[in-house]
Nucleic acid binder design. Sequence first.
DNA 1: ATATTTGTAGACTGATTAGTCAATCATTGT
DNA 2: ACAATGATTGACTAATCAGTCTACAAATAT
Lengths: 186, 186
Amino acid sequence: MDKKEEILKTALKLFVEFGFHATPTSKIAKEAGIANGTLFHYYKTKDELILALYAHTKSRLTEYMYANASKDESLELVFKSIYTNTIEWAQENKAEFYFIQQFSTSPFYGLISPEEITKQAKPHLDFLQAGIKAAVLKPLPVDMLYTLINSHIAGINQYLSSEEFSTPKQKKIINESFQLLWDMIT
Amino acid sequence: MDKKEEILKTALKLFVEFGFHATPTSKIAKEAGIANGTLFHYYKTKDELILALYAHTKSRLTEYMYANASKDESLELVFKSIYTNTIEWAQENKAEFYFIQQFSTSPFYGLISPEEITKQAKPHLDFLQAGIKAAVLKPLPVDMLYTLINSHIAGINQYLSSEEFSTPKQKKIINESFQLLWDMIT
DNA sequence: ATATTTGTAGACTGATTAGTCAATCATTGT
DNA sequence: ACAATGATTGACTAATCAGTCTACAAATAT
């Protein structure tokens, strides 16, 4: 049993349910079935725990995003694969995805260095830049393109989470919304 | 001097800067130049203050959104006016807009009743529904359309906030991004 | 004028918080 | 076997927090 993982898992659940302001470290420790001191053995401060949780969750998402993306395919297919993967991950890991958004829209996000943020975005921006260069994507500023795509995904995810859709219906929405996005940026 | 307003103004500033978890009511009172008890005279609990701040800020945005929207214009022009107004307000009231997002992506949002949320969205959804009926907008589910538009606006606002653009450049971005959105939904 | 309500203050409290600490327990390497 | 290092505990603390209380001031009503 990996206590470090257990702490992250529990913290995620509680932060999403009650927010940062209303989940004391004591509650996390209790719910995780460990002693108070153990939590602070692994994470020096509450802030450090929150930052670690973000990094961990974000990297899990990033990993999944690029899964099965064979580079032989056309740019559209690769892009669609990333798009679909992202939304599928978000739907299968709703708390995780919600946490990423919660964190990003909180002052905690400011604790991450600009370099780290740039580094995170780099591969995505490069990918988009290549698409522009190949004259597949519209020659918009890459940052703008990137933000627009992210927002679109966040929106569709929110829509999918707002109701209970059957799996085929969900797939249909993902396909259709991808087409809307693709038409917008190409 | 309206102390109630002063409290809201100060709370907004501190919540945006430090987050809910790290801005005690004592700090708000101190910074607002009033006594601790006075804050609780106007707002029974911290939660009530937070909810009031959200309602107040949200209604200020909504009011501004529909400003100068003469109903004689074409649907496209009315829609563009709403789009432009929203982004302009967001740019001129960055802290306020950020707070709305921060609140919406936090467990506090769950404290607002579904009826209230539906009521808030109603006019927007009706507007979009009319656009679909008039065969101007694509026959997509209104909820999806609504979420897509909101996300698009949030994205463009984020992009505009990420750098320092000159006013004309900013206007150009707003116009171009509107066209992208409009082409996507019509 | 007097009574009643409303606004304002700030000291105070009981509960809670993040984080510490000294003491065991488990694991590993030698 | 036996150090030595790391993991785990939970009682503890100092600080902080949301919210209360009493007192008084200002405004408003009668």
